[in-house]
């Protein structure tokens, strides 16, 4: 009878009975706990971390500057203690040996440096004065130079610079400049002129 009423209702009234309250019996979810406790092994049991206070007492801590705190590499040196550091390949590093490795030798090279010439670039474009004589063009100006202290001059043609060797014992300080000029015409050679 109920089925017949349902069919009539669906046919004439567009009604359909909706069944609810299904008797679903779902199992409660299982909650698993970690069965295996995680153990932490210390690789360097003898290594004590250096704190800022301990660094301060050793005088190794640099005060903060514009780039923040900086710790000198010397601070983490373990003197007399073998500090082992492990990488994935079980490589051992003995940081105590770093200080010995970075001893630096400073050499005196004054005698070699005295043999090096000074270099002057062509600054003609900045120089307002030109010693142009009729029929002459100025190619370059080199300066400032101490004319009376010059031992040797050489023009490096590739770069257009002038190499200058001074007498290092000279007491002269009077400055000047050196122009490179050339007369217009075939076969004319450039000439130097102190001003």
């Amino acid at each position: 009878m109920a089925g017949f009423r349902d069919k009539l209702a669906r046919h004439f009234l567009n009604q359909a009975e909706v069944w609810g309250g299904c008797d679903l019996s779902l199992d409660a979810p299982h909650v698993y706990t970690l069965q295996h406790p995680v153990t932490v092994h210390s690789l360097c049991p003898r290594m004590a971390p250096l704190t800022t206070s301990s660094l301060k007492t050793r005088g190794r801590l640099q005060l903060p500057n514009s780039r923040g705190f900086r710790f000198s590499i010397v601070s983490v040196k373990a003197k007399g203690t073998r500090v082992r550091r492990y990488s994935s390949r079980e490589l051992r590093v003995y940081s105590a040996s770093l200080k010995k490795k970075y001893t630096l030798k400073v050499r005196n090279g004054l005698s070699q440096m005295l043999e090096f010439p000074q270099e002057r670039t062509n600054r003609l474009k900045w120089q307002t004065f030109r010693p142009n004589e009729p029929g002459e063009v100025t190619l370059a100006w080199y300066g400032p130079l101490i004319e009376d202290a010059v031992i040797k001059l050489a023009l490096e043609k590739g770069r257009g610079t002038l190499l200058v060797w001074y007498n290092s014992q000279s007491k002269q300080f009077k400055t000047g400049g050196l122009y490179l000029c050339r007369r217009l015409g075939v076969g004319e050679k450039p000439e130097w002129r102190w001003v």
């Binding site: 400073v106 004054l110 070699q112 001074y166």
Partner: peptide, 28 residues
């Protein structure tokens, strides 16, 4: 003031190893 050398010092080059560079980073 004339550019004539009065003192010139230079150091030997230091070559930190790759491992040292990795260990100490930019601090090195």
């Amino acid at each position: 003031f004339r550019g004539i050398p009065l003192d010139f010092r230079y150091t030997d080059p230091i070559r930190p190893s790759r491992l040292e560079r990795v260990l100490y980073g930019s601090a090195l």
